[in-house]
Design a protein around this nucleic acid. Structure first.
Lengths: 225, 225, 225, 225
DNA sequence: CATGAATGAGACTTCATTCAT
DNA sequence: AATGAATGAAGTCTCATTCAT
């Protein structure tokens, strides 16, 4: 049967691609200039459409922001969780290899910019904070906490405060992404070799976690006057 | 003495305090809502003055932002540098005690919000990025890098990539501040015991740096695909 | 017969009905929400066609408005004129019976909404005012004025200012229609039995017109209390 | 005592007059062009201020509309009620003289335009319909119904359906106002001597109400079709 | 110095109209 | 003929900034 199915043709193919194109454009601009300082028309222009078209796909600039965050966070995070669940073998190896690789890829991807967006906008848009906390932070934290606890149970790691260890591990990776889209993108050369840093950081933390000679007694930090 | 002079005494005190009050108000609001989404009038109101008065002290909202960042960053950073320069004795002890304390105090101080501000606005306002990079990041980084290098030279630390080690040490501390003013300030209970985390994190990193048994050969991170 | 022809039969019928369906939908919406506040797409949707199709039949929203007014006014008014011209016999009877019936029918018909439309839009669209004045008001007025004059000449009515009498007779009938599509359509129960009112109003006016005994000088009745 | 009180000076005097000036401008334009078709900036311009100033006094165009209707309706209606309550003597006299005069004044006043506004916008803005119904229609109707009932009780008027009589009396007066701001304001000469018409209409209705020869049996209006 | 009324550029959003399919 | 995706002019409303008082 001939082109009775091909009728969609050009227009319809564009229509299908639009949401992604708009999200890409919006991500780039929101990360670069901030949400409030980005004009809806700029997003449209960068996506190659007119102002009105943007509103055909997202009912408001705010909904576009939420869609950006949902889209780029959730598509990445699910991959990561799947990866971790599939892994068998040494926890240390997994973290050193797979975690490093996953973060290295994120670091090189525009999606890494969402961290900046979330930090900047979560307080203004409660839905964003909630989405990020429940859909990203909690699952990812639980995943890593579980791995570290398993490593400790297996005698691979020292017994430490697991939540803190997760933060120690992850925060610098997030910061590297923030840095890339903040200071590193400023005039002047403030760049940082993110991939190398991430690998070394993971090594350093694993080293700290690694079960060896007993620790010296930690010295309490006096509370501020 | 005629009373025409009696009142000015009080008023003059207020007048002198104005810049600080305006900076405090601006910091709080800029951190909470973002620079672009904060209205100049809100800042004035929170500082207890009228819109017009704000412009008597700062010629524009943008200049106010820069003043906020300069003020809260530079006053803190100089303290820290002085602290470090005065220290004699074990590097590890210094980091574990003084660094932890300095950051714990910052964490509890509104000034910690500037990190969020800088990350959000550095790309929009080149001066801010440059100021932060040259006046804060570089001196602080040099300071810590110097300490770690000294520690390594003294046999207290392993020989590692110093720059990475500094980032591993500092990034989570910055992230804790960011977290406090982003997710932790959202509805829902996403708080985190920042002081405890900071202490444990510093311990963990120092532990990783600490010169003990030989390290296992680090496994190279394969480049993405 | 191949089915390529079977469907068009139906479609052709629809196509013929389109203008009327569009006019009905437009009338209802313009009356309900006002011309400017009604979106062209709403009209199309209510008529069961797409936005584009509307423009196949009417070149602009404004032309649609004019068509609505022309259509619903002229079709009604010609009926009325014919009715009046056919009548023989007592003027009073004609007015009491035929006029009442004609208005009662209009009152129950969506077409009654055009009065609201004309009043709201005549000043914005001169053509509308002119059409209404020349095609509706003047013929209708002339018709009724002629009848009343005839009634007066025949001794059936008192001699009064004929133009005023026509307005006294007709204005409340128009107002009843306006009321039905304005206040009576609002939340709350502001309805009014239009048909009964119209009949009684016509009676009252005819009574006022009716030739009877000279009026007594009204005697002032002291109000109670 | 010196000018410590005179400080208000120019600016403050303007500020006090603004709301009235804006309401006047808004009334004129809303009546002329309709609410939706009037731009906020036009209203501001006609009131001699800038766009932004309008929003200093009314938070939205819709609130401005409501304020216009509340203002022009309520200030007029209270006068009328007071007038009626103060009257003693013949009901017929009151209606013929005071009612006619009150309406004649309204007819010549821009406030008469609100009727057009209410009819056009009541369905879109429920508050408007409710305000008009409860604050204007009901009190005014009750007032006149009471008078006519009193007249009937005193033998001055025939016994008729009081509500219908009120409508017969009032509807044409409202229509005259509508006419003035609709057709009469269109190009072409569709004017009408409103004051004369009003007086004659009131006479005619009072004449119909007046107690004289028995009425002919009213002929029932057949229901439609 | 301080105020707050006023301004107007500029941003978001809507919607009449067009036109490729 | 019919559709509905796309456009961009135009309108509402905000807010940084100015300036008369």
């Amino acid at each position: 049967m001939p082109d009775s199915d091909a009728e969609p043709a050009n227009r319809r193919r564009r229509k299908q691609a639009r949401p992604q194109e708009l999200l890409d454009a919006a991500l780039a601009l929101f990360v670069e200039k901030g949400f409030a300082a980005t004009r809806a028309e700029e997003v449209a222009k960068q996506a190659g459409v007119s102002k009105g078209t943007l509103y055909l796909y997202y009912p408001s600039k705010e909904e576009l922001l939420k869609a950006v965050i949902r889209h780029f966070l959730s598509s990445r995070i699910t991959e990561g969780v799947v990866l971790a669940e599939q892994h068998v073998g040494s926890i240390g190896d997994f973290l050193r290899v797979e975690l490093a690789q996953w973060w290295a890829q994120l670091y090189d991807n525009p999606a890494a910019g969402v961290f900046k967006l979330v930090i900047a906008e979560a307080r203004n848009f409660p839905e964003i904070g909630e989405f990020y906390a429940t859909e990203v932070v909690q699952p990812a934290h639980a995943l890593l906490a579980g791995l570290i606890a398993r490593g400790a149970a297996a005698g691979e790691f020292r017994v430490v405060d697991v939540d803190s260890a997760v933060h120690s591990l992850v925060f610098p990776l997030v910061m590297a992404c923030l840095h890339r889209h903040a200071l590193a993108a400023c005039p002047g050369d403030w760049r940082l070799d993110g991939r190398a840093f991430m690998a070394q950081h993971i090594d350093l933390v694993l080293d700290g976690l690694c079960c060896r000679t007993p620790l010296p007694t930690p010295i309490a930090v006096p509370s501020p006057r």
